[in-house]
Simulated scan of single mutants.
Amino acid sequence: MRILFLCTGNSCRSIIAEATFNHLAPADMRAQSAGSHPTGEVHPRSIALLQAKGIATTGYFSKSWDEIGETPDIVITVCSNAAGETCPAYLGNVLRAHWGVDDPAKATGTEAEIAASFEQAYRILRTRIEAFLKLESTIYQDRVALQTVLQQIGQLS
């Protein structure tokens, strides 16, 4: 099972999701991340947050969806519609779900408030990833049921 976490810049949320998923998932499930308009760098706060959580950060980089070698089985967009962001539409015949999360890279305020924004994004994504990883393997055979469950998971906070 190959998962692609997709956003626009591929510098924060999708990288956090990719690294967290790969940290928690069994060996037969792998995640990648990409952006429709990648920034070209991973946000330093994303790296610091992942390292603080004990999640490996080696090898993660901001990349375009054009650089993804294999077609994923599932594409999960993590842009926040509530923040007025337009989520990219991945071109391909894959199962899609939307797990919108506010962009911590756009957080303003004190250091503590900005750090809290990154922590919140991580916490939401981890909760959703853990729910995904608890699914019974039989659901992967039913695209309609899996689509429904993935959308429900995207509502968890």
Rank of each mutant, 00 (worst) to 15 (best):
A31E: 08
A48R: 01
P38W: 14
Q32V: 09
G35A: 09
L49C: 08
D28H: 14
L50Q: 12
E41W: 13
G40H: 01
L50K: 05
A48W: 07
A52Y: 08
G35P: 02
I55F: 00
G54F: 09
A31D: 10
S36P: 11
M29I: 12
G54T: 04
I55C: 01
S33D: 07
Q32E: 07
A52F: 03
R45N: 12
Q51I: 01
E41S: 14
L49V: 06
G54N: 06
M29T: 03
H37S: 15
A52K: 01
L50H: 01
R45M: 01
H43E: 14
S46Q: 06
I47C: 05
L49D: 01
E41Y: 13
R45P: 03
S46Y: 07
T39D: 13
E41D: 14
A52L: 02
S36Y: 07
R45L: 07
R30Y: 04
I55W: 05
S33Q: 14
P38L: 13
I55A: 01
P44Q: 14
A34S: 06
R45W: 11
P26G: 11
R30Q: 14
L49W: 04
S36D: 10
A48K: 04
A31H: 11
I47P: 09
I47Y: 05
I47D: 06
A52R: 03
G54M: 08
P38V: 01
R45C: 03
H43Q: 11
G40V: 12
H43S: 05
S46T: 15
A31W: 07
P26F: 00
D28Y: 00
E41I: 13
M29V: 06
Q32I: 08
A34Y: 11
K53H: 07
S36K: 00
S33G: 05
R45H: 15
S36A: 15
R30K: 13
L49A: 05
S33L: 02
R45K: 15
Q32P: 00
I55H: 02
I47Q: 10
G54H: 12
I55E: 06
Q32K: 09
A48F: 03
